[in-house]
Design a protein around this nucleic acid. Structure first.
Lengths: 210, 210
DNA sequence: CTAACTATGTGATATTATTCACATCTCAGC
DNA sequence: GCTGAGATGTGAATAATATCACATAGTTAG
């Protein structure tokens, strides 16, 4: 499936295209041109064609792209035509909200484990039926339930230690909500979600035009 | 403060440098070289120096950067040496968790308004003392309380309509947590936080190495 | 005061990413 | 079946970004 060295930015855009295409599908739009799709995604039409060209030819010249087909093809490209199991670590405000949040399920991600360090929370049942485990059981439970991706929603101070444990448990993908740069071996891929950094960008733009 | 055309990526990195520097400060480290800082932030040392060079000379040759000074200088660069008022729109799981989340306050952001469409929630008082207003009052309240940045944490379907109202109320910065591409006039700067897109990237990496 | 050392700031270079522009292919209508 | 309109796929051109490499300047020790 993967031929050359693919820009990371391309992968991110493919996700965005997919989201937009899924919306179009709900509006019963069957075919779309790169031009119209580009407009909706806020990118250049050639960009879309280039991004897709890394992986093959998915369009029909003179016509455009069949929305339904393209969604499935992007899913293949990204490896989304299979289930991915998630573990949430840290069930404070943010972790609890995320685990309740419908978007993960909507896109085929399933929580199969949840951890916290607070003894008060251990054994409690979450709305989705999951029981909270103590973080000391992380390695065992992660292996047992075949978790693929760990989500860190702990305070900043605990993030690195949790990351270490996840790596030890054989996890190769981490989504990190803690506002620190965590260090992991090369085999593990980390994506950071830090909304205060995004706010800083906004502050900069508001302060100095753009 | 701003001289040439600054890459967006530079602005994002400046935020990251600042976060790391603030940690160093708590460890009583007073001076740091671009090399050591780069390692902690996971970037190239020359990158740091170039990023800073856009805005002036902040280091001491042969020595490095004074951590405390650099934090303040980056704050100046980003426009963070002043308060920024936020409005949360949408107080479901995510919105409620975010408004409780300590990181905004820690970095000088203050919620001065909160909105929801659910009549049941109107008038309720949040832990930080804010009373929830109905979204129909958005324009009025936003102007009254001098909100600078709107945060959208509504379902995807409502996001565009909320964005329109925020723009109408004179807002120029939006942090969008809804998983849709919202369309706004050029005067308004939007940053998106979509964690399922990040998960997609992780899925891709896990599927096809990298 | 001088010399050795160290880390910045920056021009030159290399790399990567985006956009353009057009040849190529498909479909619809006659 | 042929023709014209329309949209893809892609090599070439451009733009943006990151890295290298070194001259420069500050610091410290003798």
């Amino acid at each position: 499936m993967k031929f050359a060295k693919i820009p990371m930015a391309t992968i991110v855009r493919l996700s965005i295209y997919m989201r937009t295409l899924q919306e179009l599908l709900e509006e019963d739009i069957e075919v779309i041109s790169s031009e119209r799709l580009a407009k909706q995604c806020g990118v250049n039409p050639a960009q879309i064609r280039k991004d897709l060209a890394y992986f093959g030819e998915f369009g029909v010249r003179g016509v455009g792209y069949r929305v339904n087909d393209l969604v499935n093809q992007i899913k293949d490209i990204l490896g989304l035509n299979r289930p991915w199991n998630l573990a949430m670590v840290g069930l404070g405000n943010l972790g609890s909200a995320l685990i309740r949040h419908g978007n993960f399920i909507k896109h085929g991600y399933v929580f199969t484990a949840a951890f916290d360090a607070d003894p008060q929370k251990i054994g409690k049942r979450l709305p989705n039926g999951l029981v909270i485990n103590h973080v000391s059981e992380l390695e065992e439970v992660v292996r047992e339930r075949e978790v693929h991706v760990g989500i860190i929603a702990t305070p900043a101070n605990d993030a690195q230690s949790v990351a270490n444990q996840l790596v030890l448990a054989g996890i190769n993908g981490i989504l990190n909500f803690a506002p620190v740069q965590i260090q992991v071996p090369d085999c593990c891929h980390v994506e950071n979600v830090d909304f205060t950094i995004k706010l800083d960008s906004i502050a900069y733009h508001l302060s100095f035009g753009s």
